[in-house]
Design a protein around this nucleic acid. Sequence first.
DNA 1: TAAATTGTGTTGTTTTTACAACATTTTGAG
DNA 2: CTCAAAATGTTGTAAAAACAACACAATTTA
Lengths: 226, 226
Amino acid sequence: MENFSEIKKTKIFAEISENDMQAMAYCLKIKFANYNKNDTIVSQGTPAENVYLILKGGAKVENIDSRGDISIITKLKAGGVFGIESSYSGEEEYSEYLIATENSLVMIMNRHRLINPCQNKCKRHDIVVKNLVKLIVERNAELIEKLRLLSKKNTREKVLAYLYRQSSLAGSVYFDIPYNKTELANYLSVDRSALSTVLSKLKEEGIIDFDKKHYHIDINRTDISK
Amino acid sequence: MENFSEIKKTKIFAEISENDMQAMAYCLKIKFANYNKNDTIVSQGTPAENVYLILKGGAKVENIDSRGDISIITKLKAGGVFGIESSYSGEEEYSEYLIATENSLVMIMNRHRLINPCQNKCKRHDIVVKNLVKLIVERNAELIEKLRLLSKKNTREKVLAYLYRQSSLAGSVYFDIPYNKTELANYLSVDRSALSTVLSKLKEEGIIDFDKKHYHIDINRTDISK
DNA sequence: TAAATTGTGTTGTTTTTACAACATTTTGAG
DNA sequence: CTCAAAATGTTGTAAAAACAACACAATTTA
């Protein structure tokens, strides 16, 4: 089957055999599409009909508010899914943009078919649904984590909380983050130059060190664990 | 069955008959507990074993960070559920507080039993699971909504976006919000007195009006819809 | 590889916020 | 109904952030 090796690598289809996938492909009205870096895969405000699974490359989920301010919701790597929540909620329009951050291969599925298992042909469909729920819960946890960051009352605390968290996830005080400075500012919803100032200050104080997207943090001095 | 009339009113058990509920009660190890206003129902950091369903009264979900700052995550009314996400994610400790905001009756269920339908006795369990997923997705949408608020770059915009949203939900420019000023400040993660100043300014400008928890907003002047 | 674009750090200015302190008002318990 | 506690609005001050403008570095891409 076309692109099956990539499909197999994703969390939501990991347990599905090529044969079962074949059957499901028809049922889910699967299509494949290639996008170039910076292509808009989905536009905020357009009718929500599909679920997008990144097979190769990567994409970012952004929201642009009425004033034109951009806020990066999250970044998706291969295996990442866009549009499930709106599928379950029944939302009629996408409320975010999905933009390719690299040249990407994307699998497009009909959202209605995806979340409503047909008992006959797609016998493994229920497993996929279970995986989708798991994914939603994970996303939920991410959102709460981000809320925790944005609830901090100044940029310094947001940055430290973010880096501390990334360090924990990486299991090391040396780690890479997925954002450059401009993107990090968007992610934390702070002014880029203000972020730059704070980062410089923290570096000067010896609490953190960084180069490009690589960071080092002196855990004992973050005042976060106290 | 004990408290069945209240259980019946909740979203997650709405379709369940008294007989089926009876069977399920045993399976889910259901217990009931009464709490007084301001009682802590669940403490952040304690082992997560149960899911809590508010049957009567209400509760708030709070997070306290390392600096002691309180952030209200959300408020739960009767029918509200606490602890599902951590059940699905397998998180071992509760990461929030659940605190009664009124005298409340709470149904406590074993989280493992709840999310893993036993096919034999609880024949309607799968419906409950489906309802739980729906609930998680709804919560997810709420979280994104809140993120959108916290991403605004100053208090005035946060307040206006919040009130605009509440007005939309209520379907009227006259509406009540569930928070008093102090709680609203926590919810929006801003200083209480700063919030008070902004609210006074907006009232003076005639853009909003309010009394206690009742608000009026002049939609045409919020600059949000532009 | 050269040119154009994007990313980064810095600085000064203006605006907004947090903080603290206080006076009233409102609420709730007894 | 009374009194204590909690909520609210206000103000001044200090700290922080947004904003804008700029120089330079790094990265794309033509």
